[in-house]
Design a protein around this nucleic acid. Structure first.
Length: 523
RNA sequence: GUUCUCGUAGCUCAGCUGGAUAGAGCAACUGCCUUCUAAGCAGUAGGUCGCAGGUUCGAAUCCUGCCGGGAACACCA
């Protein structure tokens, strides 16, 4: 009797899940949240670290949507500054009019190459300078000489002069800047498209870098900031466990924090949000603590909703990625390699020989990105993680491809059921079907989807949803191996199994879409 | 030096708002394709939860100290 009650309870639970197309998601409640992510520099192409950032940002935005928020995805592009001038200067000196078309490489890579050229040439100049200094002052500490040389090479001085020209609006400089940034944007757009991420609004630092000076005045007037004798403006945050922090230079120019203060107001005026999430690496923890503390002191009503999603670095088995040592994993290269591996593996299995080339390519991309995204998102965002190239292309076990595979398998079942006109609406199984333990386990698991979405939204942790998807796939896989759907003689039970399979497929698809991963119908 | 952060099986990670025998995957080994996709399933083996104290009826989980890894502390961004 008890058993029967319990069976019916789970059957009804299944029916409820099956009938709710948006199962797991919260209805829109109108609250607004801004998610800022990606935020690349326009002097070099995207790398592995950016991939974690972009996948996280996109996923967090999707998860917040599923939690009922109205989401504005933004990208604050760092398109100006001394580092940009370095690429520009190197191009001016050594570029010989090369273009992405003439060189046959993506614009972001081309510009990145000139950044490297600058760095190499500059390094030689540093060595020369240090040697010169040593001859002049043999007793001085070598590290100090290196530091001094680093600030005074002819190339650095030229780059600084160029930055000044840019700020003054010098036409030639600005034109070069526009041309090269234009190349980079074409390259970035291509990479973003391949990655499957996008933005609702793009901010450019060239438009926002002067913001915040009025806030300095406001801070002085409110007595939050104070001016030192040389004219520089500071805030004392010792009571908040932080130090004194400069907010305006003695010459009246802005620093990073000045700009971010102004940009915060600017963004809020654009999109009056309850929450504002900054997806930025954990090396900037201190900066964001200071930023948020200042905004709270200013009494900004949005300040309490600000959150720095401080994600950990991605390390390689050989250690940290270092551009100087050439150990940076390029995003485009990595994705291309993953696709080629997906292609090889798929061809070996030979299950999609009837696919058109276009369909096949779409699948390779889906599998490659699925593997990569899942690999990077299954880990708690806050933690430093290891990127092991060999593991990341693994398609077995706790991987994106495993989950995709289970979806494809169910899709195959459903196709067959539809072909046979099998009906699996609840009338066919409620009160009649018999549930095995593994089926109850699966239904229970599906039931937890809404709370998993809530949890991942509250923690800003896509890993929670990723883990859910994996567990569903794993449990389904077990069910699939233990019990047969089409060979089940009891018709109500057969219907129930089809409904359960269908509900599972939808949960997998839905959860995977929250981490930005598509699932195939066949693979 | 100060502050932050991490330390769970050989490796990569879950678990951490305290609760019973600490879970996956990879790698190793053993089985399973004439039945719905084997990119799969089942099983074996593998752990003093960095160390030492403390709080508690109870600690991987909370507190303190130590050890070890990473990071941040510019009139850089």
């Amino acid at each position: 009797m008890n058993l029967k009650l319990s069976q019916n309870f789970w059957l009804h639970t299944l029916a409820t899940i099956f009938e709710n197309k948006d199962f797991g998601k919260t209805l829109p409640h109108g609250k607004k949240v801004m998610v800022e992510y990606s935020s690349p520099n326009t002097n070099k192409p995207l790398h592995l670290g950016h991939l974690r950032n972009n996948f996280l940002g996109y996923s967090v935005a999707e998860i917040l949507k599923a939690d009922g928020y109205e989401v504005m995805k933004t990208n604050l592009v760092n398109d100006r500054g001394i580092h940009i001038c370095k690429s520009m200067l190197a191009y001016q000196k050594f570029g010989k009019g090369e273009t992405p078309e003439s060189a046959g490489i993506k614009g972001d890579h081309l510009v990145g190459n000139y950044y490297v050229v600058f760095d190499k040439a500059n390094k030689r100049q540093i060595e020369e300078l240090v040697a010169q200094y040593q001859a002049e002052t043999p007793n001085e500490d070598i590290e100090k000489l290196k530091e001094k040389a680093g600030k005074n090479t002819p190339l650095i001085l030229e780059a600084q002069a160029m930055l000044k020209k840019w700020e003054e609006g010098d036409k030639e400089t600005v034109d070069l800047w526009k041309k090269m940034n234009g190349w980079v944007y074409v390259g970035f757009d291509e990479t973003y498209k391949t990655m499957g991420v996008n933005f609702d609004k793009i901010y450019y630092e060239s438009n926002t870098y002067l913001l915040g000076k009025d806030l300095v005045e406001e801070g002085l007037a409110k007595g939050i900031f104070f001016r030192k004798e040389n004219g520089s403006v500071w805030i004392d945050l010792k009571e908040d466990g932080l130090d004194e922090k400069l907010v305006l230079r003695a010459d009246g120019t802005s620093v990073y924090i000045t700009q971010d203060l102004g940009t915060a107001d600017y963004k809020y005026a654009d999109f009056p949000m309850e929450k504002s999430i900054y997806i930025v690496g954990n090396e900037q923890d201190y900066h964001f603590k200071v930023l948020f503390t200042i905004l709270k002191k200013f009494g900004r009503n949005y300040a309490n909703g600000m959150y720095h999603l401080s994600y950990g670095m991605v390390e390689l088995p050989s250690g940290k990625m270092k551009s100087r040592e050439g150990t940076v994993v390029d995003a485009d290269d990595l994705i291309a390699e993953m696709m080629s591996i997906a292609e090889t593996r798929t061809k070996e299995l030979g299950k999609i020989d009837d696919f058109s080339e276009e369909e096949a390519k779409k699948l390779y991309r889906m599998l490659a990105l699925g593997a990569l995204k899942y690999y990077l998102l299954r880990v708690d965002p806050k933690k430093t993680m290891l990127f092991n190239p060999e593991d990341s292309i693994d398609f077995q076990g706790d991987t994106g491809v495993y989950i995709q595979f289970n979806h494809a398998r169910i899709a195959s079942l459903i196709r067959r059921a539809d072909l046979l006109n099998n009906n699996y609406q609840k009338e066919n199984y409620l009160g009649k079907a018999k549930l095995q333990d593994i089926e109850i386990e699966l239904i229970k698991l599906l039931t937890s989807f809404p709370q998993k979405i809530k949890e991942s939204a509250q923690e800003y942790a896509p890993s929670v949803v990723a883990d859910f998807a994996y567990n569903v796939a794993k449990t389904y896989s077990k069910f699939y191996n233990e019990l047969s759907v089409f060979n089940e003689p009891d018709l109500p039970t057969k219907s129930m199994r089809l409904a359960l399979s269908s509900a599972t497929a939808r949960a997998i698809k839905s959860a995977m879409s929250l981490i930005g991963v598509e699932v195939p119908e066949r693979m």
